[in-house]
Computed example of a mutant assay.
Amino acid sequence: MVIAIVLITAVTRMQREKYRGLRDADDHALPADAIASREEIRQLKERIAVLERVITDNHGSADLSRQIEELRDR
């Protein structure tokens, strides 16, 4: 009985370490994807800020045209 308990505990620990190792291996690939995602989110936030400014400000058509062209150039 004691041997069975020790065996079950050992197998459980081995499986836990195996899955922890697989999870850690996936985490090493994450930073490149995370960096790309963060950069894309930053760019989208900048574009949204410009669009909000364009919509809410009343600077005239020349300023509006310039800001629209800046968005197209990105």
Rank of each mutant, 00 (worst) to 15 (best):
A25F: 07
D73P: 00
E40P: 06
R16I: 02
E70M: 13
K18P: 05
A4M: 11
E69I: 10
A25Y: 10
V50M: 09
Q43K: 14
I41F: 09
L22A: 12
D63E: 11
R23E: 12
A34P: 07
R13F: 10
R66N: 05
E70T: 07
D33P: 02
A29Q: 14
T56E: 11
V54K: 00
V54G: 01
R47I: 07
R42F: 13
D57A: 01
S61C: 10
V2M: 14
I3Q: 15
I48A: 08
D26S: 13
A10R: 05
Y19E: 02
I8Y: 11
H59W: 06
I35Q: 09
V2W: 09
L44Q: 04
D73C: 06
A4T: 15
L30S: 07
E52S: 05
S61E: 14
I55C: 00
D24M: 06
D63R: 15
T56V: 01
A34C: 08
E39V: 11
E69T: 11
T9H: 11
D73H: 07
Q43H: 14
I41N: 06
D73S: 15
D63V: 03
R72Q: 09
A62T: 09
L71I: 04
T56F: 06
A10P: 07
A25D: 10
S61D: 11
D57L: 01
L44D: 05
K45Y: 08
H59N: 15
M14D: 04
A62K: 04
R53Y: 05
R42T: 14
H59Q: 09
I68F: 00
V54N: 00
E46L: 12
M14F: 13
A29Y: 15
D63P: 07
R23F: 12
E52V: 00
A25N: 00
E70S: 14
I68H: 04
T9Q: 13
